[in-house]
């Protein structure tokens, strides 16, 4: 993975929040994931296959998801089911949009959603994993990208 790859994911993430909410998300400086876990309340994981292999996940808080769901559905009644579902949908959209850069050989899986603060999400050890901090409104999230 190189800087260009990271930019594709950063652009896709910024575009997601801007398009849905009209408000830009701010991404922090990406860093290499170490041994410390990067897991918040809900995590949406997408497996990548084809020319590139690996996985991408977004991990975020229940509050951020509720706020976003209320905007998308234009009400104030986001259920836990909606919040969980939305985690997978964000991961799917961010990963699917980067096909604009990578093309159709960048295959994405359906999302898997993990609820609750797991100890960590296991990633391939031989591949560098980057963490992109995201701030939207006052909510913190992380996009984790692990690509061969």
């Amino acid at each position: 993975m190189n800087e260009t790859d990271l930019h594709f994911f950063i652009d896709s993430t910024v575009n997601y929040f801007e398009e849905i909410t009209g408000e830009q998300a701010v991404t922090g400086i990406p860093y290499l994931k170490g041994k410390e876990p990067v897991v918040l309340d809900y995590s949406g994981i997408i497996g990548i296959s084809g020319k590139r292999k690996g996985c991408v996940y977004i991990t975020t808080t229940r509050e951020m998801l509720k706020t976003l769901a209320n905007i998308i559905l234009d009400d104030n009644e986001a259920t836990l089911e909606t919040v969980k579902d939305l985690t997978g949908e964000i991961a799917n959209t961010i990963s699917g949009n980067v096909r604009e850069a990578y093309g159709s050989s960048f295959m994405i899986s359906v999302p898997v959603v993990i609820e609750g603060r797991a100890k960590d999400i296991r990633l391939p050890e031989h591949v560098q994993t980057f963490v992109i901090p995201i701030t939207w409104k006052d909510f913190k999230s992380f996009l984790v990208v692990c690509l061969e």
């Binding site: 799917n92 959209t93 961010i94 990963s95 699917g96 949009n97 980067v98 096909r99 604009e100 990578y102 093309g103 159709s104 960048f106 994405i108």
Partner: peptide, 9 residues
Amino acid sequence: ITALKDKAT
């Protein structure tokens, strides 16, 4: 209606 943004698809 999809997230897949590539032209080929």
